[in-house]
Structure formats: structure tokens, C-alpha cells
Design a protein around this nucleic acid. Structure first.
Lengths: 146, 146
DNA sequence: TTTTAATGTAATTCTTGATGTTGCAGCAGA
DNA sequence: TCTGCTGCAACATCAAGAATTACATTAAAA
């Protein structure tokens, strides 16, 4: 099972917002055009990013802006804002293992710390990348195209 | 979005198979009893583990057995056998970003290596845990219960 | 050889979540 | 007031996970 595209869409949004901030007003319609999806999808994601305190969204007039310097917004911040994990756990268990079976009643005790370590390994790697990396990476790619 | 319970069910299966290998024949019905699910669910997972070469399943007579020493079967081996990832990628993109937009046509070039690094961080941590860790951990937990 | 107990697998249903779409109320600046 | 945009509810669609039933196939034991 893959992680939903909303996460990469959110990163796409941040990249666009920075790349075009001087030339266009960044609206949900504008972003939907670059990503090629529906503006309402964008607004839902913007709403999540706003709730997480990562951006401000100007109601009425339109336009979005990050609340912090781009090098302070990590991939993990975006991931956390976007991906709703039940109890914060990446891994799912089957519900109601058999308590009569010694394995069934101990399976959580046996696995929880190991699965958490695996999850943390991923989340910590996410903290090594920031939106500013996307901004500078985008600049390089644009320069190559000319 | 969470990783499906089939992964933790597979780990549960390995743990049970070892814990009861001397006292019971390990059938899909027996395992379904401990996990509290349907035998067909178990058989599908067993089928995946067999295809990956991690276990043998005795047709007709029933019973399963690992093909390797337990310390040589890592969580990653099980994960890889169980989780069908499109193109091997953990992260999803929205299809068809706008090629007219410089961000849209470069979003993959911009993100692919970073997302791969995050995925690898998780997968490498998975390689640090083996089925043998579950066997010994289960022994300790059982000892405590008495 | 027949019986028996398993596996292998197809077909179906149910549920949930991601995604897409329409419609409209609310807001703020021109 | 008019215009353009956000916020949000209400659906529709689709795919995947999970559960269940049914049945053919297999291999050992009786």
C-alpha cells in the first residue's frame, strides 16, 4: 500500500508557491492547473497545511504564503500535516487476536517497539529535507532547461 | 494511510509457526484461530511467502516450515514478499502534472531521489530485525507469564 | 483404493479511503 | 455592489483490504 499522493501534491504546492510568488497570485485554481487536478482537492490540502501552521491562506482576496523560512519547513512537517495516521502508527494490526493463544495475546508487546523504530527511521530521514531544498533544486532544474 | 495488516499478520504467522512447531501441525485453520481471522486470508499470505521463497507449504498433508534459519529472514524480506508496491515506490504522485508548468514537468526530477532515500531509510531499518528476534522475544514473554 | 484433511483459488460481498465534482455560502478588496 | 476567491458540504466513482463461500486438487492415512 502506497502513501497517498496528497503528500507529494503538498510538496508540489510549496514548490509552485515559491517559484511563482513574484509573478502570480497563488490561488487554488492556479495550483490545480500546475498539478492538473481539481481546485477543491487543493483547498483541502491547503486547509490541512494551514491547520498545521505551515502556511497562511488569504480568504476573499486569495493567495497563500508560508509562515516560516523555507529551510525550517521539513518534509516531515508536511507529512505530519497531511497524513492522518490512526494513533500515529504507520503499521496496522489485525484487530482482536486470540487472547487464548500466547502469541495472540503478546503480539503487540512483541512487535510494537520494533515497528516504531522502523517508522522513526523513515520520519527522521524526512526531517533531513526541507522546502528550501525544493526551492534551490527547482532553480537548478530551471536553469538547465534554458 | 497505513501499511496493511497483512504485514503484521505475516510476522504473527512466523512467530506462531515456530512457537507451536513441536506440538501442532501448522495449518491455515490453526493460524486463523490465533490471529482470529479467516483461513483463506492466511492462505493468501502463505502463498505470497511461498512465492518469495521464505517458507514451504505442504499441500494435501498440510503444515508450513521456513526455508532458512530464522536469523536469516528479516522483516524486510517479509515486507517485500507481502506489500505490492507499484514500481517499488512507496510514495505516490498525482498523475499527469501539467507539462506547460516548469514545476509540473520537473516535479519527479525534483523529488524522486529524496523520496527514495526516505523509503530506503525505512527498508534498511527493517533489515535490522529478524524472525529469530521474534522467536527469542516470544520465549521471554512466555517465561514472564508463568 | 477410498477416505480424509489440507491447500489453491475463483467469485462475491462489504467497508473504507482516495479522488473528483458540483454547488453555494462567506469573505475581502476594488 | 461586484468580483474573485476560499470554506465546506454533499455526492459519485473507483480501488484496495478484508471476509466469506464454494469447490477442485493434492497427498497421506486408513
Amino acid at each position: 500500500m502506497q502513501i497517498s499522493s496528497r503528500f507529494t501534491v503538498a510538496l508540489h504546492i510549496f514548490t509552485c508557491a515559491d517559484a511563482f510568488k513574484d509573478d502570480y497570485k497563488i490561488t487554488s485554481d492556479f495550483l490545480a492547473g500546475s498539478i492538473n487536478t481539481n481546485p477543491v482537492i487543493i483547498r483541502k490540502i491547503l486547509s490541512q497545511l494551514k491547520k498545521a501552521g505551515l502556511i497562511t491562506v488569504a480568504r476573499g482576496t486569495g493567495g497563500i504564503a508560508p509562515t516560516k523560512p523555507l529551510e525550517e519547513i521539513t518534509f516531515y512537517d508536511v507529512y505530519e500535516a497531511i497524513e492522518p495516521l490512526e494513533n500515529g502508527d504507520l503499521f496496522n494490526f489485525h484487530t482482536d487476536p486470540n487472547p487464548q493463544c500466547p502469541v495472540g495475546r503478546n503480539i503487540h508487546a512483541l512487535l510494537d517497539d520494533k515497528l516504531k523504530a522502523i517508522q522513526l527511521a523513515m520520519e527522521n530521514e524526512m526531517k533531513n529535507y526541507t522546502i528550501d531544498d525544493l526551492r534551490s533544486g527547482m532553480q537548478e532544474l530551471s536553469a538547465k532547461e534554458i
